[in-house]
Design a protein around this nucleic acid. Sequence first.
DNA 1: CGGATCGTTGATCAACTTCAACGGTCGTGG
DNA 2: CCACGACCGTTGAAGTTGATCAACGATCCG
Lengths: 193, 193
Amino acid sequence: MMDKEHRLFAHAKKFSPLTEEDWQASFPFFETLSFRKKEHLAQGGSPNHKIYFVTSGCLQQYFIDNRGISRTVQFAIEHWWIGDFLTFQQGQNSDFYIQAVENTEVCGISGENYGQLLEKFPVWEVYFRQIYQIAYGAALNRVKYLYGFSKEEIYFHFIEQFPEFAQRVPQYLIASFLGLTPEYVSEIRKNRY
Amino acid sequence: MMDKEHRLFAHAKKFSPLTEEDWQASFPFFETLSFRKKEHLAQGGSPNHKIYFVTSGCLQQYFIDNRGISRTVQFAIEHWWIGDFLTFQQGQNSDFYIQAVENTEVCGISGENYGQLLEKFPVWEVYFRQIYQIAYGAALNRVKYLYGFSKEEIYFHFIEQFPEFAQRVPQYLIASFLGLTPEYVSEIRKNRY
DNA sequence: CGGATCGTTGATCAACTTCAACGGTCGTGG
DNA sequence: CCACGACCGTTGAAGTTGATCAACGATCCG
């Protein structure tokens, strides 16, 4: 089915004792999807009943605030999961949009398949437990930076910690992710260099 | 061992098929601890090698920002887990302090015991996977409010969504959690009522 | 009673936003 | 291959939110 080992399989093996047979049997629960830059994987205001693992490319998750401004809450590049983890299984509406920042290939799974997969192959529980544990820990760390630093410090800290993003993601999206205006980013960059 | 069903057992049963026998065998991996108001469970700058489930009372997790101000990143009341989930298993240093807001009783587990517990009783994987999945989803939702709303809106939204906290937690800690100053909270409350 | 703790008030001030306009670049269609 | 327009970053002026600082009051608890 695959010449090269699938990226999700490689990732899952790093966190759990997933065997080749498990993987083969698990694979049909996922679907491979491709999106062109700017295309949407999910719309705010409707159920987002899938979560996605990025195999190549880059996605952003955003919402529209009460003044109509779009606000990025999360990026995902290779090996990252993205989605509305609170609602995708129950089918409630989600406020989040998911959009391709670059041409992107993902491995998606529906809430239903996700439930069945975990039931039939508990080894996936081990994997997802760790993914979420790390993601949650990282989210609290993010709050740490949001609160403890000035916007200027937040920006440069981000650029230094994730230089890769500065290359791949347009400046205005980074601004949106960090909660500042593109104009202000311009200004502090000018001061710095 | 217990007259009444343990709160952690009750909670775990809601999320996983944990049996009475599993629970009895799992119990020794945890330890029950009591803390008086203002007492610390963990110190920033050193390894926080435990995570805690609150059985009664209230805890806060905070760090000291680069100007010396303490910033609350998370509260935990009954049925909530708290800790530094990124580092507690590896024993790295953590920046976070954990302190009792009220007299509090917790069920703690060390990184080591946690690893063994999950290995011996995989049913706990199911439980923690869901706890973290929810916590991570909620963390992204929190970012949504931080970015999309003014500080005044953030404050009143929080008070309305968690009126219980407004009762139990002093105002300056809520301010710290929401990223605003106690003085500003005073001001917007004055305007409102 | 006395001190620590927490909330309040008002004046000043800085960080950051908003708005409007311009310029450069890239991709697409003619 | 050029030209046009969309898209993105930049600039600067004016405006606002919310922080800072210092002082005072109230309340709780030993």
